[in-house]
Design a protein around this nucleic acid. Structure first.
Length: 728
DNA sequence: ACTTAACGGGAATAA
DNA sequence: CCCGTTAAGT
């Protein structure tokens, strides 16, 4: 077939076309941001199906989010028709593995109706274990232990494999073993288990492996740079025989190493598949030349990377705007004002995204957006599925599916309050201990044994009966009907709607959950629970809503917007203080900035604040602009004419705001005259040392500790007869 | 048994 | 600031 006239190829450039039509085999596509990798992946699948005699049921495509999977399936439907794509496996690693494990549960001694434990559930379990093992939860923080367990799983280490070098490791190994036992007893798997158990299944069961590798004869993977050891093992096991593995990667966008992602998987790929063909996608279709130049300048400073030659035909463009604000409030104000200005100029709300390093930063932005009447949608943070009322209802549903799930049992045994306090619960738990069974089974035997009197007996019997009925009704009822029944049985509505606005909103959330179910009528309870456990925050992102998007840099991966604001570009935030002592982690923070910058199509704003409150208090020390901003080329930063207030470049990397940095200010605020730690001499009080220095509006307040029994005094700088002393 | 207030301690990113 | 835990009160 003539490749340049084929309809599937007509809209592709030369590099893309080569990548799409390359012969079947191991293929690595190295793709810069905005170079159309999703398009290449989609067209590759279409090409394989229509021109290479590949059957759709032999294709497995792994995307980074459910949303990406949905979109890819839609595009393929348009290109090829539903009939061809219906049998194709398309989803995230986690969703794919969850499905495989469900089907192969028996081969693993796993319940086919296992439930997925989210991070809250994990924490509950780990806290219990720390208590059971009699450990000090300050020294052995449940969260820290969970992190260790998670990394172990990502590297396919079981509790017995866990390398013990220190006593702490020994504790981790013990907690890990206990944790796995507990999950097993509850028929639960955590997120990492989904990957690890699948990898182990393929490793240990040749029959199962051969079935899946014949089924998924052709595997395609997006965002390959963010796969971890377990995921790579799965890919390798599946494809090593038929050798049809097609991966798309960009090492510069590797931002999940903390989750076990290992970009060295690219190296492993070359070793395991020496015949690997490599394709490059270097033309950027997303951003203007100026934005691309800025981003390139940032990423070029990272060591150990392959230099790329990204280019675009969108020459020039709006300069990147660098803006300094006084604090996070004014930063948010600036974003809101600038957004409003752009809206008047014709942009739509949905064209604009505001990104930040940590979820906590969204608060100031939200408050300001509400004040400015700017519609926004927030990704993450207050995740719908992590709200208390939603988790409660889900816990009820989980108990209907699996009453032996102790974690859910504990969560809602007294929600809404039904008189089962710690004393009564203690009896249930003791019974369960004695009989080596779940709390639910313990409850049943306790109720039957007639060993209770009075009030406790009544409430326990009522609760047991209620649970039992739900379990009975599970098959006969639709999920919607089951929810209605649960809400009625528990009196959840009157519990939630306490008359407050918050109560109303909680009830609305519950109804929203019900509406989610109603959208897929006929869905089985188990499928619903699995789906819910695996939704990502960005999956929720509805395109129809015209609102400004607020999201973390991490969730921004794969997205693009005409206008992007990157906020909080300060030392300690980006790079994050937790990463600053490790060059590897700082490099990843730099990639995070690069990912953020390359989301922008037309306009890019970079903002940072002079002072940022933390934990509700103002920091005593001002922040410094991010060291990364140093590397922006001046040409990309020229101020636009219409910009009334002028932002300045930071004066030096990680340098505090010294008097030598003469920058035009956001507002008329004088330079700080003092800094903490500085020696001063006061006309009345003599010598002292500055212990705090802060601005209240444009006034610099200086707190000084004097010797000679004078103590601490606070002054308005400039008004006080005081001057700095030279340092020795 | 449950509610409320006071306290202490702590935080990054996410399926 | 937000959380979970604890102590005291209803």
């Amino acid at each position: 077939m003539e490749t340049n006239t084929h309809p599937l190829l007509s809209i592709l450039n030369t590099q893309q076309r080569a990548a799409v039509t390359t012969p079947i085999g191991p293929v690595l596509v190295l793709a810069g941001p905005g170079s159309g990798k999703t398009r290449v992946l989609t067209h590759r699948i279409a090409w394989m199906l229509s021109e290479m005699d590949v059957a759709p049921w032999h294709v497995l495509a792994v995307t980074f989010t459910n949303k990406a999977a949905r979109e890819m399936r839609q595009r393929l439907n348009v290109m090829l028709g539903d009939a061809r794509t219906g049998s194709m496996a398309l989803g995230t690693f986690h969703a794919t593995c969850a499905r495989i494990l469900r089907r192969e549960a028996e081969n693993l001694g796993l319940s086919p109706s296992y439930l997925i434990f989210d991070s809250d559930d994990q924490l509950t379990v780990m806290k219990q274990i720390v208590a059971d093992l009699g450990l000090d939860d300050k020294r052995y923080r449940p969260r820290a232990l969970l992190n260790a367990v998670s990394s172990a799983k990502n590297e396919l280490l079981s509790p017995t494999d866990y390398p013990v070098r220190t006593y702490y490791d020994e504790i981790v190994a013990r907690a890990y073993a206990r944790y796995q036992e507990t999950l097993h007893q509850n028929d639960g798997l955590d997120f990492d288990d989904l990957l690890m158990k699948t990898a182990r299944l393929f490793e240990t069961d040749a029959e199962v492996l051969s079935r899946y590798r014949d089924r998924y004869r052709h595997v395609l993977v997006d965002e390959f740079q963010d796969t971890n050891v377990a995921q790579y093992a799965i890919l390798k096991q599946l494809t090593h025989k038929h050798r049809s593995l097609y991966v798309v990667a960009d090492e510069d966008q590797s931002i999940y190493s903390w989750r076990g992602a290992d970009y060295r998987n690219i190296v492993r790929l070359r070793q395991d598949f020496p015949e690997l063909q490599t394709h490059l996608l270097e033309e950027n279709y997303r951003s203007t030349q100026i934005i691309l130049d800025g981003a390139q300048a940032i990423i070029a400073r990272n060591p150990d990377r392959t230099p790329k030659h990204l280019f675009t035909d969108k020459q020039g463009g709006h300069p990147i705007v660098l803006h300094e604000a006084y604090d996070e409030q004014e930063e948010a104000d600036y974003v809101a004002r600038e957004a409003t200005r752009l809206l008047r100029a014709g942009y739509r709300h949905g064209d604009i995204a505001v990104m930040y390093r940590t979820n906590a930063q969204s608060r100031a932005l939200e408050e300001t957006f509400i004040r400015h009447n700017l519609p926004y949608r927030l990704i993450g943070a207050t995740r719908f599925y992590s709200r208390k009322e939603i988790k409660d209802v889900l816990a009820f549903l989980r108990l209907a599916q699996n009453p032996d799930d102790d974690v859910s049992f504990m969560r809602v045994v007294n929600v809404p309050p039904r008189g089962i306090g710690s004393t009564t619960l203690g009896k249930v738990s003791a019974q369960a201990q004695n009989h080596q069974c779940s709390l639910y089974q313990g409850l049943l035997s306790l109720v039957e044994s007639d060993g209770l009197r009075s009030r406790a007996e009544r409430v326990l019997t009522a609760f047991a009966t209620m649970l039992h009925q739900w379990v009975e009704l599970r098959e006969a009822y639709s999920v919607t009907r089951l929810i209605d029944r649960i809400l009625a049985d528990t009196g959840y509505e009157s519990y939630t709607r306490d008359g407050s606005d918050q109560g109303e909103s909680r009830w609305e959330n519950v109804m929203a959950l019900r509406a989610v179910v109603a959208e897929t009528p006929g869905i089985a309870l188990l499928d619903f629970l699995t789906e819910v456990a695996l939704v990502a925050d960005v999956d929720e992102l509805a395109d129809e809503v015209d609102a400004v998007t607020l999201l973390t840099l991490h969730s921004a991966k794969g997205l693009e917007y005409p206008v992007v604001f990157l906020t909080g570009l300060e030392e300690g935030l980006l790079p994050h203080s937790r990463s600053m002592d490790s060059p590897m982690e700082v490099a990843e923070e730099r990639r995070l900035l690069y990912v953020g910058m390359t989301r922008a199509e037309q306009r890019l704003y970079l903002t940072y604040a002079f002072r940022r409150s933390w934990r509700g208090y103002r920091d005593s020390e001002p922040s410094s602009p991010s060291r990364f901003l140093e590397d922006l080329p001046d040409e990309a930063l020229k101020q636009p004419e219409d910009q009334k207030r002028r932002a300045a470049r930071p004066s030096g990397a990680a340098k505090p705001w010294g008097a030598e940095s003469s920058r035009p200010e956001t507002r008329a605020r004088p330079e700080p005259q003092y800094r903490s730690g500085q020696r001063v001499k006061h006309a009345f009080y003599g010598e002292g040392m500055v212990i705090e220095c802060e601005f209240e509006g444009r006034n610099e307040m200086v707190t000084v500790l004097f010797s000679n029994g004078v103590g601490v005094k606070k002054f308005l700088s400039g008004m006080a007869p005081m001057e700095p002393l030279a340092d020795h």
